[in-house]
């Protein structure tokens, strides 16, 4: 243990020189420690709000200020497990909305939520990614095919459909949630 002792001595001296003291606290799991860090580092535009429900659940409220979805208010649930950030958080849209990349059950097709997730990404990336879906809905890789086809064929019609869906209207026999932001 000689080598280790000399390393510890060196460390002790360093600490004394820096005058820093160790901060012992908490009995949190590493996943919780990491999520606390992510929360501290959040840097969000005013169009995204985050509410903590409990240690493992967050409520996200997105109010886009431009684009097709400008007048809507959209809620998402984020669930985090004990293996975060190795496992990606589970994100669901809590409203039934008309969107090429979000299906009627609230499943979301966003690369960083599945195949491109990596532990170097954080909570902030996910939230900005969600906002991005409202500013730039992506019709080339759709989850809700019908709405994607409308977006490709006729942007104006898509815009009208989105507005009507936000107002709680029906499109092709499907009734959408009233999510108008007032």
């Amino acid at each position: 243990m000689l080598k280790l002792r000399s390393l510890q001595k060196k460390k002790q001296e360093e600490l004394q020189n820096n005058g820093s003291s160790s901060t012992k606290d908490r009995k949190l799991t590493p996943a919780q420690i990491r999520i606390e860090k992510d929360l501290k580092e959040l840097d969000l535009p005013p169009t995204i709000k985050l509410q903590k429900v409990n240690d493992k659940e967050f409520l996200i409220i997105i109010t886009p200020d431009e684009g097709f979805y400008q007048y809507g208010i959209f809620k998402f649930q984020i669930l985090i497990n004990n293996n975060f950030p190795i496992d990606c958080p589970k994100v669901k849209c809590l409203n039934k909305i008309y969107h090429p990349n979000i299906d009627l059950d609230g499943n979301i097709c966003l690369n960083i939520l599945r195949e491109d997730w990596s532990p170097v990404l954080n909570l902030n990336t996910i939230l900005v990614g969600l906002l991005f879906l409202f500013l730039e809905p992506n019709a080339t890789d759709p989850l809700n095919k019908e709405s994607a086809n409308v977006l490709i064929r006729d942007k104006n019609l898509f815009k009208r459909y989105v507005l009507s869906s936000i107002n709680g209207g029906s499109i092709d026999g499907v009734r959408y949630d009233y999510v108008l932001n007032r």
Binding site: D87, N101, C109, R114, P119
Partner: peptide
Amino acid sequence: LDTISGQTTYPMC
């Protein structure tokens, strides 16, 4: 931790 890759997943779409 950043060097560890998680489980393989496929795009939802």
